[in-house]
């Protein structure tokens, strides 16, 4: 078991390394001149050459990658071309907002999906099942940013219950939470659509198993049979999809922050793009990809936690 975890850990580290390399080479081998971006079109070629030299852009790309990687593992992602402050600082400033949004959305997504999925499975073939399936099809087809706009029209423009966007900062936690309700809801409704569907089919599969009959025959209540015996056995496919959805959650968060003008990483990356701030974009894309990879690593560990049969294999 320890061996198993160590092996997973090694694979995880290698994947992270591969990702950082892929991003670095993609963004540095492709044509584009940071010196031009920083100094502007009117700058002289001499000035640009001097700056390139100073930024180390004339060194071989492998060498630059290793230097960048060496810094990155110590939390140094270089200095932003456009903001003129360390990229790490920019990220640290905006991370809490993004984490809060993603975390809130995830909690709501999982809770909603499990309740809907279990409900649909226990009402298989009846009206409730159809309603959940319809919700799921619609949720998959609706872009989160459009749903956000509909929510804003309803709850901000028409009813005026919640703010249409912007973020008041963390000093007033209630106001901060209110600012996050609509964006988190939009993300969660869309994400839970797929997850509810998977939960439903996994539950239907598990409910046919003999051990569910055994549990019922020992006089356990239907609720206990569902939540304590059936759901844990359905968790492996559910957790797999949760892992896959983290990629959607990351991109969804980027999009939603732009819909609601929330000052998180998603906004930062777009500011960086419009400034052609390559070094910042590079750090952030690596960070986003690393989050996705980490989530999948955690899912791998979750399998071991869920299922003793997988633990037994070393």
């Amino acid at each position: 078991m320890t061996l198993l975890i160590l092996r997973r850990l090694l694979g995880f580290a290698l994947t992270l390394l591969a990702i950082s390399a892929a991003v670095f080479f993609l963004m540095n081998v492709l044509p584009g001149d940071p010196a031009m971006v920083i100094l502007g079109i009117e700058s002289t070629e001499d000035a640009r050459a001097a700056l390139r030299d100073q930024l180390g852009l004339n060194d071989p790309v492998i060498w630059r990658y290793l230097a960048w990687l060496g810094g990155a593992v110590q939390g140094d992602f270089g200095v932003s071309y456009s903001f003129k402050v360390p990229v790490a600082e920019l990220i640290a400033e905006r991370l809490p907002m993004t984490l809060a949004l993603a975390g809130l959305a995830t909690v709501v997504t999982v809770a909603l999906a499990l309740v809907l999925g279990v409900y649909a499975a226990t009402h298989h073939g009846r009206a409730g099942d159809w309603a959940v399936m319809a919700f799921s099809q619609l949720g998959i087809a609706i872009p989160a940013f459009w749903l956000s706009m509909l929510l804003v029209i309803l709850f901000a423009v028409t009813l005026r219950w919640l703010p249409p966007g912007g973020f008041p900062g963390w000093d007033d936690p209630i106001a901060a939470l209110r600012a996050l309700i609509l964006p988190a809801t939009a993300l969660a409704l869309v994400q839970s659509a797929v997850l509810a569907r998977v939960t439903r089919s996994a539950m239907l599969e598990v409910m046919r198993q003999t051990y569910i009959r055994t549990a019922t025959a020992t006089g356990l209540s239907p609720a206990r049979v569902m939540w304590r015996h059936a759901l844990p056995n359905a968790l492996v496919p559910i957790v797999t999809i949760i892992g896959m959805q983290v990629a959607n959650l990351v991109t969804g968060t980027i999009v939603i922050e732009n819909v609601f003008y929330l000052p998180g990483l998603g906004r930062l990356v777009f500011q960086a793009i419009s400034n052609r701030d390559l070094i910042t974009v590079q750090a952030m894309v690596t960070l986003f990809a690393a989050i996705v990879v980490t989530a999948n690593f955690l899912v791998d560990l979750a399998y071991l936690w869920i299922d003793p049969r997988l633990r037994a294999r070393t």
Binding site: M27, A247, T251, I254
Partner: peptide, 21 residues
């Protein structure tokens, strides 16, 4: 297996940063 780490949006962001949108 490896490419799951790059959703379309991340890829588009990288390209946009280098070439412009």
């Amino acid at each position: 297996d490896f490419s799951f780490a790059f959703p379309a949006l991340l890829f588009a962001i990288m390209l946009a940063a280098v070439f412009g949108p």
